[in-house]
Nucleic acid binder design. Structure first.
Lengths: 285, 285
DNA sequence: GCTAATTTAGAATAAAAATTCCAAAATCAC
DNA sequence: GTGATTTTGGAATTTTTATTCTAAATTAGC
């Protein structure tokens, strides 16, 4: 009936405020775990060894996994300083999702403020580039990459197709292949000469295109596919039109800053691909 | 009241059965995306570029992110062969726990699997790129950057000069300037036509070159300087030959992987420069 | 071994989320 | 243009999930 005197909760006050990162959460967990009641300790142990489940499970599922009652889970969450399970799960979810949401909202804010000094803008592109690179490691499928290297190492001639914002990527590929003596043709679109007939059945095409997809790239690639050439696509999402023609897809998601992107991830992927192909081909000489 | 006769669903049967892995899901998505109605396609694009959100979001959240109604999300899920969103999310959630290991451990793993696997090489380039970007913020002098923007915003026409490994940088600058309606000329070296006479005293030149410096770039730039044009140099070290001709120098140090580099830093610097110049010029209209 | 305080289990309730439904709008075929 | 068909938006409904509550069990202090 009578509450504990208010000042007694002072000591708990710090303990009661919710952790703001999962690191802080686990730190607190480690510090308080052994003065927890039996079932709560049991649950603490469970999520300590299954931290990845918190973001994607319900209370009931976690409770079952730890062999405790759902209400024990609730008590645990409150003990850790959260208002309930939902708040705790929110932390785990935001911490997980690769910092996409955080980054996106941060960018949006900066855009509103219009921090337009060149250095601030540069900082944005640097940040976007770093995040894009980090992401690249998760979006590129190692198997697809390996397959792409196989196909390109086997090809007689490699054709690079990509215009506008994709052109820096293809032109860098051209430079790399030239330096490694790999027979490769850069389709630059110069002089509007129709180059599709130089693509032979035993050739391979590296097509680079991002939304909005350049018509010419899709055209050339589709025709090359019809001839029988293999296609390796560097593109942004699986719904890209290149998916239809059975291309080997390497997915890159770049963060935009305003209407532009830094291309860091695309170029890193391209150069890694080129060097892999180059060393493979030269070893087989 | 009367159900469609069972055999009518035969054709749909294959289409209707739910994908069992996320790979299968995205494969199907790529194959069917363009024959989807507008809103469903819109949502398809959204989750194609934000696949990681599916496991940890509600229907309402995803719907808002894609700017569609929750019911559209439900229709999408059913179209893809799931009974509803819950079933689809279940798939993504079970797939999720494998992706939990963070960037650092993932990188370490990739390196382990043989120094020569394409993925390992990609990891190297990603790492190099991230380091280069980090460095960029310290090597680029904000004052020099500001000065470069001033000069370029004032110029009548901007000329971009840079060949071989620098060409991706200049070609991306050309793309950006074109998109922002800034009068700019890309000196591509095509057809060996001597373009130096198109550079006028009120013009500015962006010269991009890294060791070993391409003769042609130094030539063209020196001549432009003699005519009276301003020079902005994107280069690697202060001892670059461009230092002699009183160019505004923006220094970039890229980390090499073998004989190649990812160009992340150079491109980030270039695009930040271009966007700064573009917004400045368009504001002054 | 008894009493008081704490902890637990499970049911009851409240909140939130998924799913369905239907009228309105858009698109298509003629 | 007209009618038929598909697609869409939004509200209504159902289901799932989180949260609270209380009596029973356990534990700790004496």
């Amino acid at each position: 009936m009578i509450e504990a005197k208010p000042d007694a909760s002072d000591a708990q006050a710090t303990e009661r405020s919710a952790p703001e990162t999962t690191e802080a959460f686990f730190e607190r967990l480690g510090a308080t775990a052994d003065q927890l009641p039996k079932r709560l300790k049991q649950f603490a142990d469970f999520i300590a060894s299954n931290p990845d489940r918190v973001a994607v499970s319900t209370v009931a599922e976690l409770a079952e996994g730890a062999n405790v009652q759902p209400s024990a889970v609730m008590r645990f969450c409150q003990e850790m300083g959260f208002s309930g399970f939902s708040q705790m799960q929110k932390l785990f979810r935001s911490d997980y999702s690769q910092k996409w949401p955080d980054y996106a909202t941060r960018l949006a804010k900066l855009r509103e403020q219009g921090a337009e000094s060149p250095s601030a803008l540069l900082a944005e592109f640097v940040e976007a580039g770093r995040s894009s690179l980090e992401n690249l490691m998760t979006t590129v499928d190692p198997k697809a990459l390996q397959e792409a290297v196989d196909v390109l190492a086997r090809a007689e001639t490699i054709h690079m197709v990509g215009f506008r914002r994709a052109f820096p990527v293809t032109s860098y590929l051209a430079y790399a292949f030239e330096k490694m003596d790999v027979p490769a043709v850069l389709h630059s679109g110069i002089a509007n000469i129709n180059m599709e007939h130089v693509i032979r059945p035993n050739d391979a095409v590296i097509a680079v295109t991002f939304a909005p997809y350049t018509e010419l790239t899709l055209d050339l690639t589709t025709k090359a596919r019809a001839i029988g050439a293999d296609i390796v696509a560097i593109t942004d999402v699986v719904t890209s039109p290149l998916a239809r023609i059975k291309a080997i897809q390497l997915l890159v998601s770049e963060f935009d800053v305003g209407d532009f992107r830094a291309l860091s991830a695309s170029l890193s992927l391209a150069i890694a691909l080129a060097v892999s192909v180059g060393t493979r081909r030269n070893r087989n000489l």
